[in-house]
Simulated assay, not measured.
Amino acid sequence: MQGWAADAPAERVISVDGSITEIVYALQQQHRLVGRDTTSTWPEVAQDLPDVGYMRQLSAEGILSLRPDLILVTADAQPQSVLDQLQQARVDIRVIPNAYTLAGVEDKIIQVADALGVREAGVLLASEVVERTTDLLAELQAQSDSPVKAIFVMNAHNSSMMVAGKGSRADAFMSLAGVINPFSDVINNFQNVSGEALMQANPDIIITLDEVAIPGSGIERLLSDPAVRRTEAGRSGKVVAIEARWLNFGPDLPNSLDSLVSRVKAMRSRGESQGDS
């Protein structure tokens, strides 16, 4: 979808998708932002901007009340009826592709920069992100450690767990980090799986979000699940909690990947040390 091009650079921009908001800040164009969606939590200062709602449940009224002259969204934005309504209101809407790959991040940065009229800065930023990520991936490939098998759990309830499969950001992120997801070839996106499927997957480590662990009993509740207790991860208590923004596939991708790799290594080393003692 493409809106009506403005004669002058947009000065009232709304960003819908955490990765786009990160890009706007990385391009030093945050002074043009007048709103952001709920997934836009980084940098933390972005949370001071008016929130137009969750990117898959947008409302035209809240967005139009901010009088934007440009709305940047990814293809994940919904519902389509709201996007159509915004376009009918003659607001310039740019839909940015959101492929969960390094090439996808590069393209996303450049397209956002183009929409903001700062292509040169976008090309430079994209080049830096690609170079840093490529260097990190080369280091990972050079390491002799055997791959870690891990699952990503979005939530758990009554012995049923929603886990990440092929096509999800979490699966793509783990793959880049060199982590094997046993559900990658079994399910698509996020789906609930049974305890039997969980035991069969038998992950070495469970990865989940910080907000799952924040209540204090979240990890304990996860590890107390009968099926989890019968996995290698459950027996050794290996759970890695990450920030949701790590899955944004934005300009902070190399730092996010490095953080995950470091936590997985620390968790693995802890288990090896315990085994040697």
Rank of each mutant, 00 (worst) to 15 (best):
E220R: 06
G35N: 06
N98R: 08
W42F: 15
Y54I: 07
S81N: 10
A164G: 09
T231R: 01
F152I: 01
Q28K: 12
A233L: 08
V130Q: 07
V163N: 00
D37P: 12
L72C: 04
T21N: 09
Q78K: 12
T134P: 05
G35T: 06
A115G: 11
V91Y: 08
M154T: 08
F249H: 04
L116C: 09
I14D: 07
A233V: 10
K108V: 06
Q111L: 14
G250K: 03
R67A: 14
R32V: 12
V73R: 00
A10R: 06
M55G: 01
L222D: 00
E220S: 15
I93V: 14
D258S: 15
E272S: 11
A244R: 14
Q274N: 08
L125P: 10
G18C: 06
I205P: 01
E106H: 11
P9Y: 01
Q88G: 08
I187R: 02
L136D: 06
D76K: 05
L72R: 02
V186L: 15
V153N: 00
S259F: 07
D145V: 14
K238N: 11
L253I: 03
D37T: 07
R94V: 14
V153M: 10
L253C: 02
L247C: 12
T101L: 04
I93P: 14
G165V: 11
V129W: 10
L49H: 01
M162D: 14
E220F: 15
G216I: 08
R67H: 14
S256H: 10
D48A: 13
V129L: 08
N158E: 13
K108D: 02
S194G: 11
A6Y: 05
V240G: 01
G104S: 06
R32C: 15
S184Q: 08
L176K: 01
M174L: 15
A99M: 02
Q47E: 06
S236P: 02
W246C: 06
K108Y: 07
L58W: 07
V13Y: 02
R132D: 09
A172H: 06
Q85N: 11
S262F: 10
V193H: 07
A201F: 09
L176N: 06
W246M: 15
T38S: 11
Y54D: 02
A77E: 04
R36P: 12
S269P: 05
L86E: 04
V123F: 02
A89H: 08
R12V: 02
G234R: 00
D7Y: 09
D114A: 13
L124M: 06
R94F: 09
P97V: 08
R245L: 03
F190C: 02
E106K: 10
Y25I: 09
Q191L: 10
Q78T: 05
D276E: 13
E243N: 12
L116D: 02
V239S: 04
